[in-house]
């Protein structure tokens, strides 16, 4: 656990710093690989910048609207740099809306955009779990194992490290699959593969987290959510697979007729 990093008189928020580095590395990787998917780097860059600006504005706006009474006596707090005054869902909604608008403007299909952002999302997941390790959040169950970490007064499963390693493996696998998943009719499959693998990872490692709620006293709610997401992404992947095979067959027939 390393919530702050002391650099001389400066105390840096380590989890926040890890997330920023993760976003930067992820977007750099996505921009590098997006032209091969038919999305020029500059389009992805503009879309990311627009999404981030709209996301931050949306997050602050949603927070202010939800807690407007708290801002009445001190309207200057609206301009506070504190990230705790942000509403994640409001930011995600406005950021996604802005990115969707831009993708329509540059005539890029949504599934292609999702595929182009998949490497960024995969890198971000690694950063997310490492930031949890730094902050001590999403901590594991007590366990006396040779690799247990001393966290929050007990030896625990380093579940954040398990999930970070799984996210790293997912990124490696996706980069390997990348070339194979660019055939026509296959758009969206890359993103769905990321979703399925991430959901499977959550389903497995959630079991080692100390926090959680039981649904109907039978299963953990986060695991149930991950299981549903896994089922949905596998179902949609099947459709993409079928569509891709049909396209391949059509291509083969056309090719055969011509020669």
């Amino acid at each position: 656990m390393l919530p702050t990093l002391q650099l001389g008189p400066l105390a840096l928020n380590t989890p926040g710093l890890i997330l920023i580095i993760g976003i930067w590395l992820g977007l750099s990787l996505a921009e590098k690989r997006s032209p091969a998917r038919g999305v020029p780097s500059v389009q992805l860059y503009n879309m990311s910048a627009l999404g981030m600006i709209a996301g931050i504005l949306g997050a602050r706006l949603a927070y202010v609207l939800a807690h407007w009474q708290a801002f009445q006596g001190s309207p200057l707090s609206i301009l506070s740099l504190n990230p705790k005054l942000l509403d994640v869902w409001g930011g995600a909604a406005l950021g996604a809306a802005a990115m969707l608008w831009y993708s329509q403007k540059v005539k890029q299909p949504l599934l292609r955009i999702l595929d182009a952002y998949t490497p960024a999302a995969a890198v971000f997941m690694i950063a997310w779990h490492l930031s949890n390790l730094a902050s001590g959040n999403a901590y594991g169950m007590p366990a006396a194992l040779p690799w247990s970490i001393d966290l929050l007064g007990a030896l625990r499963h380093p579940v954040q490290a398990y999930e970070a390693l799984a996210a790293l493996a997912i990124l490696g696998l996706l980069l390997k699959l990348d070339a194979r998943m660019k055939s026509s009719g296959n758009e969206g499959a890359f993103f769905l593969a990321f979703l399925a693998l991430s959901a499977a990872s959550r389903l497995i490692f959630e079991a080692f987290r100390a926090e959680g709620e039981l649904l109907f006293g039978a299963v953990r709610s986060a695991q149930a959510g991950a299981w549903l997401l896994l089922a949905l992404s596998l179902l949609l992947l099947k459709k993409r697979l079928k569509l891709s095979a049909e396209h391949a067959l059509e291509d083969k027939n056309t090719h055969g007729n011509r020669f």
Partner: peptide, 10 residues
């Protein structure tokens, strides 16, 4: 909340 200054609204 680590760091500051914390705003009245927060």
């Amino acid at each position: 909340v680590i760091g500051g200054p914390i705003s009245p609204a927060l």
